[in-house]
Nucleic acid binder design. Structure first.
Length: 841
RNA sequence: GCGGAUGUGGCGGAAUGGUAGACGCUACAGACUUAAAAUCUGUUGUCCUUCUGGGCGUGCGGGUUCGAGUCCCGCCAUCCGCACCA
């Protein structure tokens, strides 16, 4: 055995990466007859550098992909780039570069970084969403959805920066002000394109039921996002019978507790009144200040404007309620109007207290049944209906049913299912995105770009020296003739939300013909994705949009896949300690050094403060560049670190000590593989342990419990090291190499070659996962616990399968147990076979 | 505001309702070495102790159970998402 003393990743990593590439080891074969496995990690945005979070994400997917290959699967494990988006335009503005050049440079850099980590990726399927060969097909799909009536246009609010005269993303609104101009933002209406995701609300909700390989929390979040609720839609008529205000409520049972009706600032009634009421107009303007996010709107101070109008209570026409315009009522949800029942809704109560409106209890709270309601905390719990005429004594559900039935019988309302989900607005007033393939014609209206004119490509000659969308001011981009009538027309200059790009890339990975978005037969062979891995921050939007897009394609007959991701895993973030100097400026980890319990700044010797452990971010300087650590420790140690210790769904703290430990283990594994002795003889205990670990590691990898798989490998390594040479030990060494090969593939290949003389060569990447011999798993002895009154008093090692009576007898024979019993009466004895005996006194 | 999660030694974490702390890191002691690194061997929740053991311990307060880190109820703290960031 001519093993080097140390494993040298600086030579080995690149060597094996080249060999895998030359042999096309990880290129997926569409025509394979093996069982398929499609392993996919969420593709990255090409920001410039890979960050540790990417490394963690792709290492997990890689281990699974390599494991699946070893267990006989044809594996599709592709990689691409979510390449459109705002950062490229920001870079264009700041550095005076073209978004395309900037993005493509970033892709080249990040690809090189990824390659150094030795991922088993099929690079022949690489794609970037910013290339016409991708987004052109996306435009074609968009037009198919348009033709199917799933795309429409409507007015919708955006954040408007009144100084820069431009639309801002939510991210660009900081404390209600534009990030560049500092001007308070306003909500402004624009005509925009929408996808009818609400048509699929019920399907998307029901479909969650079939996703049993998704985390419960993600399904729950999607369920809440879709927000199906049953309620009553009814009309509060204007006195005199001339129309009224439609209201949706999920609490018709509290109808007799109503004390006002509130409508959105954008409600037609408010708009109409404002035309002749300058103070109402001013209030509506006031409501339009601030950002468009839910958090902005809902945490804003609740404010209202008394319109002076009144409406009749539907259950008693003689009872009139005041109508307010209120800033917390959303035009986008329900009917844009609510009735307020302050006693049983916190927001309504806050509002009622502020404007001194009546508060009447209509749901009893224990002994509290009086119609007066004290305090500032609404009662939303269960109870019995009170102060509600004929409904008194009903349960909440009975009262709901009663009011809905009455409304329908009397014709003033109807029971309705309502969704919180809104249609998906896909228009973006930005350059760096997929152009929306529509032409606006004075006479023909919105006309789709004909197929033979696709793709609509982005012009390269654009400038970012002034705010706004460069496509709007481009000399020729928008000037086209109408495809329908030939008259001069205007090309749509909005681009698509980047979430559209990421809603079908997994289909394009599976099949990427030149002349169409995908080949249906090939795509259906691979889909759905067997394992999808990514950050939990995508739990709602991306995953819901991708599910919708796939269903929409299925709906129009392009593909027979309903749910794109059979199994989903959401991984945690990578965090790192932060450091600050005495003035509070952030310091990077390599600027400080630890001396005992004190951190000092290396350059100045001044004291530093070790702060919180937080998500890595450039602003806090607690970032670690994957390139640097791969330079230092090699790919395998970094990969091993990503998998060790922290459960993959939780946050992982990066630490120097941790990576050092991983480096030592890689070397330890290397030394272990040099210990194949050629000795004879079996070591039964070691064989059993080895096979238990084979079974355990396989199960852990399938469950993505990498930290547990790693612990089992450590455990086996400890035991092999202590074992005397034998054939069993040699076999255990080869086994531990196979088991760790998905995690540390470079070391595994290198060591496998060293052992190759005995094994006939070949790549470990192509080797089969070791088989478990169930006969070897059986233990013949077990250690049982003896408890007295539930407390551990002794442990005994007994033959496996010992009859209960004998376990009981052995337990009672124990000296320690007798001391603990101390002559007391035994009430009963609980015996769990092969586990424990509990003596109850 | 609404929604989702998390909480176990000095640290990351293990534990089908059945021996809490596997495995790793750190720290300490010892071996090897001229020395250091590397490596190897131990110890490492806490308090008491006659050294044999015993008490207490899984964010806090209750409950169910022969038995609770695990199940139920109520708190506290922290983190994440909220529709134009990706």
């Amino acid at each position: 055995m001519s093993n080097e003393e140390r494993f040298n990743p600086h030579v080995a990593d690149a060597r094996w990466q080249n060999i895998w590439e030359e042999r096309s080891s990880f290129v997926a074969d569409d025509n394979s007859t093996k069982p398929r496995a499609y392993v996919l990690e969420m593709f990255p945005y090409p920001s410039g550098r890979i960050h540790i979070g990417h490394v963690r994400n792709y290492t997990m997917g890689d281990v699974l992909a390599r494991y699946k290959r070893m267990t006989g699967h044809e594996v599709l494990h592709p990689m691409g780039w979510d390449a459109f988006g705002m950062p490229a335009e920001n870079a264009a503005m700041e550095k005076n570069v073209h978004p395309g050049g900037w993005t493509r440079d970033n892709i080249a850099n990040m690809k090189a970084q990824l390659k150094r980590l030795g991922f088993a990726i099929d690079w022949t399927r690489e794609l970037a969403t910013c290339e016409p060969e991708y987004y052109g097909h996306e435009q074609a799909l968009f037009l198919k959805l348009y033709a199917a009536g799933l795309v429409y246009r409507k007015e919708s609010a955006v954040n408007w920066d009144p100084v820069d005269m431009t639309v801002l993303a939510n991210e660009q609104v900081i404390d209600g002000k534009g990030w560049r101009s500092g001007a308070p933002v306003e909500r402004r209406k624009l005509s925009q394109w929408f996808l009818k995701i609400t048509d699929f609300a019920d399907e998307l909700l029901t479909g969650l039921g079939s996703l049993d390989q998704w985390p419960d929390k993600v399904r729950l979040m999607q369920e809440n996002w879709i927000g199906k609720s049953q309620g009553l839609k009814c009309t509060f008529r204007f006195p005199g019978g001339n129309g009224g205000i439609d209201v949706f409520t999920t609490r018709p049972d509290t109808m007799f507790g109503a004390s006002f009706v509130a409508i959105a600032a954008d409600h037609p009634v408010a708009q109409k009144l404002a035309a002749n009421a300058p103070d109402l107009q001013a209030f509506i303007e006031e409501c339009r200040k601030g950002g468009t996010t839910a958090a902005d709107i809902e945490t804003a101070e609740k404010r209202g404007f008394d319109t002076g109008l009144t409406v009749e209570h539907p259950l008693d026409a003689s009872w009139h309620l005041p109508v307010y315009v209120a800033n917390f009522v959303l035009m986008d949800y329900g009917t844009g109007a609510v009735f307020g029942c302050p006693a049983h809704d916190q927001r309504d109560l806050d509002f009622a207290r502020k404007y001194d409106l009546p508060v009447t209890r209509v749901v009893g709270d224990g002994d509290l049944t009086d119609s007066s309601f004290a305090g500032d905390i609404a009662f939303t719990g269960p109870g019995t209906i009170v102060n509600s005429r004929w409904m008194n004594g009903m349960t909440i559900d009975q009262a709901k049913a009663d009011v809905i039935a009455r409304a329908q019988a009397e014709g003033w309302g109807i029971g309705q299912t309502q969704y919180r989900l809104r249609d998906w607005g896909v228009s973006r007033q930005r350059y760096w995105g997929t152009p929306i393939p529509i032409i606006h014609c004075q006479t023909c209206g919105a006309v789709p770009v004909p197929d033979d004119q696709l793709p609509v490509t982005l012009p390269e000659d654009v400038s970012f020296d002034i705010p706004g969308n460069p496509l709007d001011r481009h000399p020729s981009f928008s000037k086209v003739d109408c495809p329908s009538c030939g008259q001069p027309a205007r090309r749509e200059t909005d681009t698509l939300d980047t979430f559209v790009d990421s809603s079908w890339y997994f289909i394009r990975f599976a099949s990427q013909p030149h002349d169409k978005p995908f080949d249906r037969t090939v795509a259906e062979k691979w889909l759905p994705v067997d394992q999808y891995i990514g950050g939990v921050e995508h739990a709602i939007l991306h995953l819901l949009y991708a599910r919708f897009w796939t269903r929409a394609l299925s709906h129009i007959g392009l593909i027979d896949v309903k749910e794109p991701f059979a199994s989903l895993f959401t991984q945690g973030m990578v965090t790192h300690q932060t450091y600050q100097d005495a003035k509070g400026s952030w310091l990077s980890p390599d600027q400080v050094r630890r001396e005992g319990d004190i951190w000092t700044i290396i350059d100045s010797g001044a004291q530093a403060v070790a702060g919180r452990i937080e998500k890595m971010s450039k602003s806090k300087k607690n970032v670690v560049d994957p390139d640097d650590i791969v330079d230092q420790y090699g790919a395998d140690a970094v990969r091993w670190f990503m998998l060790s210790d922290s459960p993959p769904e939780r946050d992982l703290e990066w630490s120097e000590a941790g990576i050092e430990g991983c480096w030592r283990f890689v070397q330890r594994l290397w030394r272990l593989t040099a210990q194949v002795s050629g000795a004879d003889g079996a070591d039964k205990a070691l064989d059993r342990k080895t096979h238990q670990v084979i079974a355990g590691v396989g199960a852990d990898i399938e469950a993505l419990a990498f930290n547990k798989a790693v612990a089992k490998i450590y455990d086996l390594a400890n035991i092999i090291e202590k074992a005397a040479p034998s054939a069993s030990r040699d076999s255990a060494i080869r086994t531990i190499l196979l088991l760790s090969s998905p995690m540390v593939p470079h070391l595994a290949e290198e060591a496998w070659t060293q052992l190759g003389a005995e094994l006939g060569g070949g790549l470990i990447a192509d080797a089969a996962w070791p088989a478990v011999d169930p006969a070897l798993l059986e233990e013949d002895e077990v250690t049982i616990a003896i408890q007295v009154r539930g407390k551990l008093r002794d442990t005994l090692t007994v033959a496996k399968g010992l009859p209960q009576a004998e376990m009981e007898a052995l337990a009672l024979a124990s000296q320690k147990v007798q001391i603990a019993i101390d002559g007391s009466d035994i009430k009963k004895i609980i015996v769990v076979p092969d586990r424990l005996v509990n003596i109850v006194l």
